[in-house]
Design a binder for these strands. Structure first.
Lengths: 216, 216
DNA sequence: TATCATTTCGGGAAGAATTCCTAACCGTAT
DNA sequence: ATACGGTTAGGAATTCTTCCCGAAATGATA
């Protein structure tokens, strides 16, 4: 078996240290560089062109997904494995949309990461089994493109809801009955697979309908 | 120097693996057990009574801060070091309120964690320098955020709520009555000046308690 | 030590919100 | 014309939320 050159990109030094030691338990895997930010990771990847990149999503500045997109725009064959704490389908979808070759969660067993790196290096796609199960089970809030299931009116009410408006305020703003708004909310939650209001807001966040104050 | 027995509590197996290898680079430090959830960590700590606990905040169910509170209620002299990705002052404050002996962020240099474990084992308090700077910077311009009005328990439930957990799930995770959680939610909303669940989530966003996929 | 404030915990009851069912109305596509 | 989906609501049962209360534990302070 050939040697597998790997670049790690993660903003947590201690965590990176752990990956490196874990991955190098496999004698064929060699970590050739480590990046701390999205920009640094991008430069390192373009310079080294490693066999596999293990990349976190949450990074200072450019996110791991954005780095993936940019790298693949210049080096389409580059193999990038997303290794994230996010167990949300939205992230998995975005990762593969960006062209990532694999997605592994940090809660997976250590051996899974090694396996994933080897699989991806061989040109295969890799999705950790928990994530694959999530895809199979379609009860995930925000899974698939659930937001597209919303009708125009539903989407409009959805937006007002996640902005923090009360049902009463919405009914006045739209000149419809409170009861109608309440019914819409029920339908929206069902279509999105959400059981709590917070989950609905989270879906809105994931789709960029609203955003947090400290977002760059 | 005496041997330092350590217990690790973190929900990410790969990350835990990394800590273990990193910490045991120091010959006096010995990792005697690893916990994956809040409940498991609590049991392990009570059973082993290690010299130092290295604990993440974000855990399934009970948070690391909640575990800290509970452990210290029974073993007041237990030394607990919070090791979290959160660089928000809110979390540092909560950690020390709960009785933690140290707070180190995961973005700190690897040696910092080892140093922190040693300091805490010797009975000292430890705060990584970035966090110490944040404290210094925050004392002047700060100005009483509404979120500071929340008690420890209220903040704990607040976090679970905005993560999308139902009242029933929270009551099970914290082993308290549904009614208590419902009452807490009312108090939280009042203290935060929020009338809808979505507004509560927005406040959490603004304080960095949760974040959106939109950074992707 | 005694005291007072705070926090944690929950029951009861009234009121509000949510769900589920139903149905009307209106375009549009078949 | 018929069928379909979207918009609009009411009714009833259920669930959630608030506001009231109090008990127990904790913590600070005099």
């Amino acid at each position: 078996m050939q040697e597998i050159n790997v670049i790690l990109v993660d903003d947590h030094a201690v965590v990176r240290e752990g990956y490196r030691r874990l991955l190098e338990r496999d004698l064929y895997i060699k970590v050739v560089a480590e990046g701390e930010t999205g920009d640094e990771g991008y430069r390192l990847i373009c310079d080294h062109l490693p066999d596999v990149v293990v990349m976190d999503i949450t990074l200072p500045g450019m996110s791991g997904i954005e780095v993936t997109r940019r790298v693949l725009a210049r080096v389409p064959e580059q193999k990038i494995l997303i290794f994230s704490m996010h167990e949300d389908m939205v992230f998995v979808n975005r990762a593969f949309q960006a062209g990532a070759k694999g997605y592994v969660t940090k809660s997976a067993a250590p051996e899974v990461l090694i396996d994933a790196v080897r699989q991806v290096a061989m040109g295969k796609l890799y999705l950790s089994s928990e994530m694959a199960q999530l895809i199979a089970a379609q009860t995930i809030p925000g899974g698939e493109q659930s937001i597209d299931l919303l009708s125009g009116r539903e989407f409009e009410i959805f937006r007002l809801l996640v902005q923090g408006q009360s049902l009463h305020e919405i009914s006045e703003a739209l000149h419809i009955s409170y009861k109608t708004v309440a019914n819409y909310q029920s339908n929206i939650r069902q279509k999105l697979g959400a059981t709590t209001a917070a989950q609905v807001v989270r879906i809105a966040l994931d789709h960029g309908i609203i955003w947090s104050a400290d977002k760059v």
